[in-house]
Design a protein around this nucleic acid. Structure first.
Length: 891
DNA sequence: GCGTTGACGTA
DNA sequence: CGTACGTCAACGCA
């Protein structure tokens, strides 16, 4: 079999991006922060389609440059008629460059030349090297390049339609050869390039002349033969036509400093591609198509993973584990986990020297179980696991434990790149090991190739264990370069066990109480619905913002509120505003409905999650929040209402469980502000914390130069808003909205504040500047957050990144501190052999269940450990409360 | 069925 | 035009 000839695909980047932009203009594609993406989206779509359909072996995208070209020197008016780049198009070229770089598709440009010239040059070279060439463009000048080897794909209207120009197709369409095309174009003129045309000569005449005389040269030689008025016009414009011809000719010998064999797609990184698609908010079909298409172009992994798998039958486990060499083993588990429990279906252990064993826990002899149990629980046998918390919970249900966890690859990857959305083992293997962890494809439930191997699942799990082991080494190295070793080893890793304990413990709830409350909220909802229907005079769904807009703005003709992407907002602020603007009762009824409905849903959601033991076992996610915080899901126990009296009633449903005496909550007071004082070193702010007065009162007294006791509620509220807003990057505008004062007054307030606390302003500015220089921010414990958008051209994105940059070290440092506090509290509880236990973490608060007789000592331990978690330049203040319910224990 | 949107609860 | 999350119902698409 003779190998296919090489095929080079050349794309005209600007031309295609422009076509794509106009084709998708009406779709108004945009990210939520205002970056338009029509051109990026359309270009990517075209690129993907043509790669898929044409299967080129070589590829490059050529771009124009902003510098003038030889054409401008020849003709100052060249392209001078081009209108301004549309505002919505701006920034999209930069995004296309980034995307191509991430996809490792070569892009070319050269000062003084247009993309067309680069394309002509490379097409000519490739042709000479016996390659086929495919040119994709929207510019008809490229037709002159068409020959037996070179085909041009010309975009038609949309982005999916392309015309394929071979010599025959050019002939058919224009009745001209490709060589004649530029002659024709020169005679015709080209408004888009500002090439003048001959009055009275259009496409028809131009083509007729070229056909008749064979070429422009021949026509000029025999120009006297052209009869009539058009003949005179032609004679008047010969010089201009010849210039047109020179401008239309594409250069085939641009000194491009690249070899043909360099024009191939390089190794690309799935995670990076996912990242840029995430940031562009491109998902679904196009993302799929890119991965599917480029999957074939994606370089083959250096080699797949190979691992010899030992499927350990009865009585083989003990011997195999005993024979394991020194070093770290990789572990992988199959099973299901969540809600404080789990089930293990299979375990794989990868040996430090290569092989891996597969263990079926259902087929263990007593001796096997004992050996496995001992090995798993042996602190001195180091182990690496991917996302260990679930398996740990599952192991506990089987009477097993897991000790010696020296690396969790999910946590390590999270610390390395906390902004990632997922940390799937497959993705990490590709990113950090540059190899594929492929699971055999299955279709229609039928086992595909090799699927009839009944050991395939075992081999797959063994492979995962092996990959985890290799990945652990790679990630630790990577993390060490980023200064994350301490956080992994001394904070996140030990925290896994503590979180598993929290999840296993759960928190007791009073089901009857919650059920009764749900009925009350439901009744209030029903009443609100009826009232709403009555005052409007028709039935509608109060839960539908769309229907509500219809009622408010079309039926009742109430004043228009703030706009959302799809219409007018009906959120609580707008409803409250509407209530002040009109006599109509509906806004107030809606507010009550929203309120009661939200509470009802919250309670309903909680009831659904009550386990058989009468407790709710949330799941804490350790690798979600980019700042380092935990998150809580199924259900989220970090957003149980507290602000309103009605909402707080829900907290009375969380109670002390049987066998315990009371609940205890302990929270850090103003921890983020204390961190700000510490990090900024602002002496005045530090002094305010040390003054012993209420903090907001103390800062207000300094700002307004009043004795603390003369600070009234109004002043205190203003400064409180300032204090908290600063850490979020609050603008003058935002502050004015929040305090209901004019923007100018908000600006003055800020000025007055910084007059007193100038160190805070310096600090906040310095953080952003530092982050821009480094590309990341850092917490007190070295937790990094990478913020590439700090250098974005897009103002909205850049300013968003700046706010993230100043918030991340503050929020993240608070997260660091409470994590350390949790570890220390847990250790102290163990050392004092207390039976009280930690149940929840809510960012700056810990909730405990107090065993009988331990209240006093527990309070002491918690206070001490939370206070000592980290030495800031101001004291960490902890306030403690106790009570039968979470509400009673609050403060 | 699935993903997006608007709304809203917490720190 | 204030950061970080998770959940719900409605809705539009496939």
């Amino acid at each position: 079999m003779t190998p296919d000839r090489s095929r080079l695909l050349l794309l005209d980047g600007h031309s295609l991006a422009y076509r794509a932009f106009y084709a998708l203009k009406d779709a108004n594609l945009m990210t939520t922060d205002g970056q338009h993406t029509e051109a990026v989206y359309g270009f990517t779509s075209m690129l993907t389609n043509v790669l898929r359909d044409e299967q080129p072996t070589h590829v490059a995208v050529a771009f124009d440059r902003s510098e003038p070209t030889f054409r401008h020197e020849e003709y100052a008016e060249y392209k001078a008629n081009r209108s301004e780049t549309p505002e919505d198009f701006k920034g999209q070229m930069q995004l296309i460059y980034e995307l191509l770089d991430i996809l490792r598709i070569p892009r070319l440009s050269k000062a003084g030349f247009e993309a067309d010239d680069l394309i002509a040059t490379l097409a000519t070279r490739a042709s000479a090297a016996d390659m086929d060439v495919l040119i994709v463009t929207g510019d008809r000048d490229a037709l002159q390049l068409v020959d037996e080897r070179v085909t041009v794909l010309m975009t038609r209207r949309g982005i999916s339609d392309m015309t394929r120009f071979t010599p025959a197709a050019v002939q058919e369409k224009y009745q001209l050869t490709p060589q004649q095309y530029p002659d024709f174009a020169a005679l015709r003129g080209d408004p888009s390039d500002n090439l003048l045309s001959i009055p009275g000569v259009g496409e028809k005449t131009a083509a007729k002349w070229v056909r008749e005389f064979g070429s422009l040269t021949a026509l000029v030689d025999r120009v006297d033969e052209v009869k009539g008025k058009v003949g005179d016009k032609l004679r008047d414009h010969v010089a201009q036509v010849l210039m047109n011809r020179r401008l239309t000719e594409l250069l085939r010998d641009v000194p491009v400093d690249v070899e043909l064999d360099q024009l191939t797609q390089g190794d690309w990184d799935r995670e990076a591609v996912n990242r840029i698609f995430d940031s562009l908010q491109i998902r679904g079909e196009l993302r799929e198509r890119v991965f599917k298409t480029l999957g074939s172009a994606e370089s083959e992994p250096e080699q797949g993973f190979e691992v010899e798998t030992f499927i350990l039958g009865p009585d083989r486990v003990g011997g195999w584990l005993a024979a394991l060499p020194e070093g770290r083993a990789g572990l992988a588990f199959k099973g299901s986990y969540g809600s404080g429990t789990g089930r293990i279906d299979a375990i794989a252990v990868a040996s430090p020297d290569g092989g891996a064993a597969h263990i079926d826990p259902a087929k263990l002899t007593e001796a096997d179980f004992a050996a496995l149990s001992e090995w798993l629980a042996d602190e001195r046998r180091p182990k690496a696991v991917h996302d260990a918390k679930g398996p740990l919970l599952a192991l506990w249900t089987q009477g097993l434990d897991l000790r010696g966890l020296s690396c969790d690859t999910a946590l390590a990857a999270y610390l390395a790149m906390p902004g990632q959305r997922t940390f799937a083992l497959e993705d990490l293997a590709r990113r950090y090991l540059h190899r594929d962890l492929k699971v055999e494809e299955e279709s229609d439930g039928q086992a595909a190739l090799f699927g009839d191997d009944e050991d395939a699942p075992a081999k797959d799990l063994a492979l995962r264990a092996h990959v985890v082991r290799e990945l652990a080494d790679a990630l630790e190295g990577f993390l060490a370069e980023r200064g994350g070793t301490h956080l992994l080893a001394d904070v996140e890793l030990p925290l896994v066990r503590v979180l598993a304990e929290l999840e296993r413990a759960g928190i007791a709830v009073d089901r009857d109480y919650l059920t009764g409350m749900e009925a009350q909220f439901a009744a209030a909802v029903k009443q609100a619905v009826e009232e709403a229907h009555r005052v409007v005079g028709e039935q509608f769904n109060l839960g539908s913002p769309k229907q509500l807009q219809e009622i408010f703005f079309n039926k009742l003709n109430l004043p228009k509120t703030k706009r959302t992407k799809t219409g007018y907002s009906t959120d609580a602020d707008q409803l409250a505003w509407l209530a002040t603007q009109t006599e109509h009762e509906l806004p107030v009824i809606m507010l009550r409905h929203r309120d009661q409905q939200k509470l009802r849903q919250t309670v309903e959601g909680l009831i659904k999650e009550i386990a058989d033991d009468g407790r709710i076992h949330t799941t804490f996610n350790q690798i979600i929040a980019a700042t380092g915080r935990l998150s809580s899901e199924k259900p989220n126990l970090q957003n149980i209402p507290i602000r309103t009296a009605e909402g707080r009633r829900i907290r009375q449903g969380f109670t002390v469980g049987g066998g315990h005496e009371t609940l205890l909550t302990a929270d850090y007071s103003q921890i983020e502000l204390r961190i700000m004082a510490h990090l900024s070193g602002d002496e005045s702010l530090i002094a305010a914390f040390e003054s012993g007065h209420d903090f907001h009162q103390a800062t207000a007294s300094r700002v307004f130069d009043l004795p603390p006791e003369q600070v009234d509620g109004e002043l205190r509220a203003r400064i409180k808003a300032m204090n908290y807003g600063l850490a979020y990057g609050l603008s003058d505008f935002g502050l004015s909205g929040q305090l209901n004062i004019p923007v100018a007054e908000a600006r003055e307030l800020k000025e007055e504040y910084f007059q007193e606390f100038g160190g805070v302003r310096d600090f906040l500015q310095a953080i952003v500047a530092q982050a821009r220089a480094d590309g990341y921010t850092e917490t007190i414990m070295g937790r990094r957050r990478y913020l590439p958008d700090l250098t974005s051209d897009n103002r909205q994105r850049r300013e968003m990144a700046e706010r993230m940059a100043l918030n991340a070290p503050i929020q993240g440092s608070a997260a660091d501190i409470i994590k350390v506090a949790m570890l220390n509290v847990r250790r102290a509880l163990g050392e004092a052999a207390l039976r009280s236990r930690m149940l929840l973490q809510v960012h700056d608060e810990l909730v405990f269940e107090v065993a009988p007789g331990e209240l006093e000592v527990l309070t002491e331990v918690v206070r001490e450990q939370m206070n000592a978690a980290y030495q800031l330049r101001v004291p960490l203040e902890v306030s403690v409360g106790t009570g039968r319910t979470w509400e009673d224990a609050g403060h």
